[in-house]
Design a protein around this nucleic acid. Sequence first.
DNA 1: TGCGTCATGTCAGGAGTCTGACATAGCGTT
DNA 2: AACGCTATGTCAGACTCCTGACATGACGCA
Lengths: 148, 148
Amino acid sequence: MTQERVNLDSSVGYVLKQAAAALRNAMDAALRPLELSVPQYACLELLGQRQGLSAAELARGAFVTRQSMHTVLQGLQDRGLLTRPSTAPQGRALPTQLTDRGAHLLAQASHAVADVERRMLAALPTGHPDRLRQDLAACANALTPAEH
Amino acid sequence: MTQERVNLDSSVGYVLKQAAAALRNAMDAALRPLELSVPQYACLELLGQRQGLSAAELARGAFVTRQSMHTVLQGLQDRGLLTRPSTAPQGRALPTQLTDRGAHLLAQASHAVADVERRMLAALPTGHPDRLRQDLAACANALTPAEH
DNA sequence: TGCGTCATGTCAGGAGTCTGACATAGCGTT
DNA sequence: AACGCTATGTCAGACTCCTGACATGACGCA
């Protein structure tokens, strides 16, 4: 029976959580002047990439549940940053659209977050960001249970 | 004015969050049979590495606030997995100790989590886990504000 | 000695997220 | 057409975690 202990400092999982926590804090600080939380920003950014996403799709992209995204969307809608039709054009999904105000705020937020990412990656040698991204994607994929 | 948009798929930050979420889910599933949450496990693991840590030290190591760690400790203490003196031997810090039951449960949990980490790293070529860990540590360091 | 600062433990309150549940709409199979 | 399966939206409740606040003990400095 081997002494199976995780040894925190040499554990990739631990350092991964550490990096994620640091990133979360940095993004939180960067977005606070805009009065946006990280989930709110994630929601706007996803819509910026592709308009008309449903709440369920946004939830998956932001790593929260449908229910959480529901409240996030209500908050953003109350601030006039996005619009949702009251009736579904087809099926049950309600396609979400950014308003002009939402797009404008997103531009500012995107800039602030890009600054954070730059600061994070500045510590890495040239070329490492790309390989880091690939390694992380492989890790995420290995842990994501095969769908269906 | 450049089109400054994060481009989620090529963003290291986004993939980092994705990997962290996948890891969190996998650990959650692995620990559920032992009736341990991830913060509870983190607490036990930290104590396994070094006995006598205070609640504040455990909180920093587990990336939560002192207050959250307080309730976590109470839960673990109620289950007889650890002990804390009622009065501080010196200063205000209450050194926490694993009980035999705590150490035994930790051994099982540690094994389960090590399995998850193995599954995660199996997707990476030889040598990559080490460089991934170093890159992540550099990222975390770059985002952690200089203390004092 | 006295004061200011910092770290720790703890209590109270609130914000955010999750689990569970239900109704509805599409789709494929029988 | 009827049934089952899946996906989505939404409501209610509980849980987790955080922010804010206060008291206490240790340390440095005037």
